[in-house]
Design a protein around this nucleic acid. Structure first.
Lengths: 108, 108
DNA sequence: TCCATATATGAGCATTTGTTCATATGTTCA
DNA sequence: TGAACATATGAACAAATGCTCATATATGGA
């Protein structure tokens, strides 16, 4: 059976960059939960503390903290302390771009 | 305790559009697996049949079929029959845009 | 210093997810 | 029509995920 040259090149490229795709999937995994994507979208509008985020998600403060830890570990958000509160904000504008990109698709 | 006007508006916007964010998370969920993202990236280069895709992923033909079904149900890919083979291709260019968007972030 | 408030963390649990195995469906060709 | 090939589907299962509950840590004010 003849083997298509072009397909073979593509297969090779994917295989060689396997780690890159793992990383890419890992990134999307972060956006793949409605709580997290809501948090991220809120933070594109303004920095917020944990309790403010808790207010509009219907989940406990604990759950919010767990999610924020994931976002922080992935370097998507950063924190600063303000008295008793911890203020969360986006580390850069990539998040906004990624969300917009997905929204564009949904809008069809 | 004083309630920040601007934060309150953001919270409201997120809550009102809750379903939209569910949908957005659902979209990212599709990209949140390395097998699927590899398939999608391959298809940005060329249409392919199932066995060609099986070749470069280290998973069984069955697993590939299951993943392709998810992609098709989500309308990210379409199919056509060519003899014994089923040829998969992207339904539109949004997929490419979304992948590029994520890649940009990884590149830092 | 003691208490209230704000956030973080660990254990436990139910749900979801991605894979494999076995098998069914569908197509081509002798 | 029957064998070989290509793909799809269902069941089963291990691993990952997101939540809650209980509790720990940290800050500010009386």
């Amino acid at each position: 059976m003849e083997k298509n040259e072009s397909i073979s090149r593509i297969q090779g490229a994917i295989t060689r960059n396997s780690e890159l795709f793992e990383e890419l999937a890992q990134l999307y995994k972060i956006f793949a939960d409605s709580s997290r994507v809501k948090i991220l979208c809120a933070l594109t509008q303004s920095e917020m503390c944990v309790s403010e985020i808790s207010e509009f998600l219907s989940i406990t403060q604990s759950a919010v903290s767990h999610q924020l830890r994931i976002l922080k570990t992935s370097n998507l958000v950063k924190t600063r302390r303000a008295g008793k509160s911890i203020i969360y904000s986006l580390t850069d504008d990539h998040v906004r771009t990624i969300i917009d990109c997905g929204m564009d698709h949904i809008a069809e």
